[in-house]
């Protein structure tokens, strides 16, 4: 063991040694992003993406109120998402550096190239809608944003998974589904909260589909990643994710009553949105926890080596 000075106090702290480490210090660096900036960025982007797609479909389906709310949420959400990112970067011009190159190997580059046009299109669409000017262009922009919307919902999952942060990288199969589901419920939630009951049926259905995906993916993250799953179950992440699950279920349940009750609809929407926030913060927290404890770096790698018998497989 590397704990060479077993003072009495320390000895009590040492867990049964099933892995070795350098004084229990982390191996990988925890994500350097600011909280709440980046979890919010994840949440807002997803909500905006789902909303934009809903808005487009609503426009096609002749649901003007839903279309209006979706368009506004897409624009507002994506602008806030950019703002959160810029806040994290520290200075506005630093966001422009993101567009210096296009790098397929960098999900942040790809994401920036999704986020930038998306927020532009969504904003244009909203502006046209609010001012009544250039309506055809606005509609076109809204449609394009609607097409980009699903990408907005899931690219952030790759953004997280494409790191050495054990909870995220090990969860790379489930995070896109989780984020897709969570974006869908959040988008639906915004609609349930803001759109009169007459036009919320699609949102209700989207919410239910999203909730199902989200709960399923969340369950897999919490149980199928070996020792790393601990980070989704315990600590701050566990609390947040449990709350997220409860709120999602609550939102789904309430949404079933939303046809009759405006209050239930609004409550369902708020629950979905709160669930989205909890889920993103929870996933972020799981990542941080998994980076802080070398166990989550060492044990999966050791297990993989034992499984494959060779390095790097």
């Amino acid at each position: 063991m590397s704990r060479a000075q077993p003072s009495r106090r320390e000895r009590a702290m040492v867990e049964p040694a099933e892995f070795r480490s350098y004084y229990g210090r982390p191996i990988v660096k925890e994500p350097a992003w600011e909280q709440p900036d980046v979890p919010l960025y994840l949440f807002l982007g997803g909500t905006a993406g789902a909303s934009a797609s809903m808005a487009t479909m609503a426009r096609v389906s002749g649901l003007p109120k839903l279309a209006r709310v979706g368009t506004l949420v897409a624009a507002g959400g994506s602008l806030a998402s950019v703002a959160a990112l810029i806040h994290d970067l520290g200075r506005p011009e630093r966001f422009l550096y993101m567009l210096r190159v296009f790098k397929p190997t960098s999900p942040l580059s790809v994401g920036s190239w999704i986020l930038a046009p998306f927020s532009g299109l969504a904003t244009a669409s909203a502006a046209s809608m609010l001012t009544g000017r250039l309506r055809p262009i606005g509609t076109l922009a809204g449609g394009a944003a609607g097409l980009l919307g699903p990408a907005m919902c899931t690219y952030t999952a790759v953004l997280l998974a494409d790191t050495a942060t054990p909870a995220w990288h090990e969860g790379r199969g489930d995070l896109p589904v989780l984020f897709a589901g969570s974006a869908a419920t959040s988008g639906a939630g915004a609609a349930l909260l803001l759109v009169p009951a007459t036009e919320t049926a699609p949102a209700r259905r989207l919410g239910l589909a999203g909730a199902a995906a989200e709960l399923a993916a969340g369950h897999r993250l919490e149980h199928n990643l070996g020792v790393v799953s601990e980070t989704y179950r315990g600590g701050r992440a566990g609390t947040l994710l449990k709350a997220g699950k409860a709120l999602t279920a609550l939102g789904a349940g309430l949404s079933l009553l939303s046809k009759r009750s405006r209050v239930a609809a609004a409550a369902a929407g708020a629950a979905y949105l709160a669930a989205g926030v909890c889920t993103r913060f929870g996933v972020y927290a799981a990542g941080v926890a998994s980076a802080r404890d070398p166990k989550y770096t060492v044990v999966p790698q050791r297990e993989r080596m034992a499984r494959t018998g060779s390095p790097g497989q």
């Binding site: 993406g49 789902a50 797609s53 809903m54 479909m57 609503a58 096609v60 389906s61 999900p107 919307g149 699903p150 990408a151 919902c153 899931t154 690219y155 999952a157 790759v158 998974a161 494409d162 790379r172 199969g173 896109p176 589904v177 984020f179 897709a180 974006a183 869908a184 049926a201 699609p202 949102a203 209700r204 259905r205 989207l206 589909a209 999203g210 995906a213």
Partner: peptide, 22 residues
């Protein structure tokens, strides 16, 4: 690449769900 495929599938899922819900 696997992650992008997965995210792409999930995005299609979102698209399909949106379309289906309407």
């Amino acid at each position: 690449p696997a992650m992008w495929r997965r995210a792409g599938a999930a995005a299609l899922g979102v698209a399909a769900a949106v379309v289906a819900s309407f």
